[in-house]
Design a protein around this nucleic acid. Sequence first.
DNA 1: ACGACCTATGAATCCCTGT
DNA 2: AACAGGGATTCATAGGTCG
Lengths: 248, 248
Amino acid sequence: MTYTLHRGDALTVLKTLPAESIHAVITDPPYNSGGRTSSDRTSRTARAKYVTSGSAHDLANFPGENRDQRSYRAWLTELLTESYRAAVEHTVAMVFSDWRQEPTTSDALQMAGWTWSGTIPWIKPASRPRKGGFKQAAEFITWGVKGTLDHSRDLYLPGHFIASQPRKDRVHITQKPVEIMQQLVRICPAGGTVLDPFTGSGSTGVAALREGRHFVGVELSDHYAAVAERRLQAELTQDDFVLAGPEE
Amino acid sequence: MTYTLHRGDALTVLKTLPAESIHAVITDPPYNSGGRTSSDRTSRTARAKYVTSGSAHDLANFPGENRDQRSYRAWLTELLTESYRAAVEHTVAMVFSDWRQEPTTSDALQMAGWTWSGTIPWIKPASRPRKGGFKQAAEFITWGVKGTLDHSRDLYLPGHFIASQPRKDRVHITQKPVEIMQQLVRICPAGGTVLDPFTGSGSTGVAALREGRHFVGVELSDHYAAVAERRLQAELTQDDFVLAGPEE
DNA sequence: ACGACCTATGAATCCCTGT
DNA sequence: AACAGGGATTCATAGGTCG
């Protein structure tokens, strides 16, 4: 398996990808949520919003969290349009969002040409309680297809996930559990290429390599690009080790 | 506990409800103005089903179907507006939808004046697998508040539900598990009144009575109004029985 | 190996204060 | 008055420690 990690702006890099080169898009854009008013959204960094005050993480901040609702949708639409262009027929795109951004996400997905085919909840059991109401315990994976699903594949994937965010060895604020990502990348045909325009710490890529898919990623931040590079490289090395050994 | 069951059109009846008479709204509207069965829903063209109101597809090639989606939103907005009028401050409204209608539902909720506060997934584990993709295993409960949540209540409710649809004794196509409804009605202060403008077979009412809340329901169909009446009446009788007996 | 116990934390939310 | 920023609050769960 191989991977390519581009350092730069997602939209700029996507425009350079050749058509028909991608077989699945799996990504987690900056949500741009975190407040009812635009000032709520713009006044804080992602890190301040998403990390408990007073906790002692050593996680770097990440950019891209200062758009208002309309420009967020326009921006996401353009990203998904470029991804669509680079994708082959039957490609599935999966986009993470929180409850606030789910309607915007499904709008953008459809505006970019994808056929919206479902929304998958990811339940996080260890979430904060909320006094006087229902707690917020889920994120959502909005997915769609370029054209139609490939019904010839003998593939049956789950309709929901239940998993906690990684806690130890966590390197990114919004890092996804690799066990979930491994389920998701199976939507890509074996040997195909998975695209993640917001690579972050690279969990999508790690999952893709583990499941025998190639990976193309884009990451803006130097810090996280280096982290992802390290994780992806380690994955390849470990693969070799596993292949060489008799057990596991 | 008491209940009132109106037989008639939801919007017409809602307009007659006095202001400040409702302390929670919990309902499951018909997902399309037309049919309730999945065959009714799937008989529409694929393209039309996947279009979100407010998206760019409003301009696309199916004006008739789009108008249908748009008028659904307008109709739901009016219902939620009348419910809002009848509700006291701090009232919570909860509306069931499937993944296709969730964006429209949250639009309508907000257009009616409610502050959208979250979307709760209800996972149905026993759902049919889908060849070549992810199965559709969830419905969504979109909820909002009139004003702000009452933070003085010592109440912490779950952020997701996992339950299969009732199988035996099922009297309605989209009947909800009473154990879920019992959790939901707890958002209503004890002794308050729960409103369900689409009573169906009356599960919301049954749950309300069991949890010590009053119930006001509306149902258009004679058949289901009779079913609901029977179930609600049985609930009160059983309550009496329970109260009279020494054990549970 | 395993259970009982303990501690830290969460893509949060609300409210108060200072500008 | 509106907005930016900081601090307190809440409990189920994960993960470690200690017998």
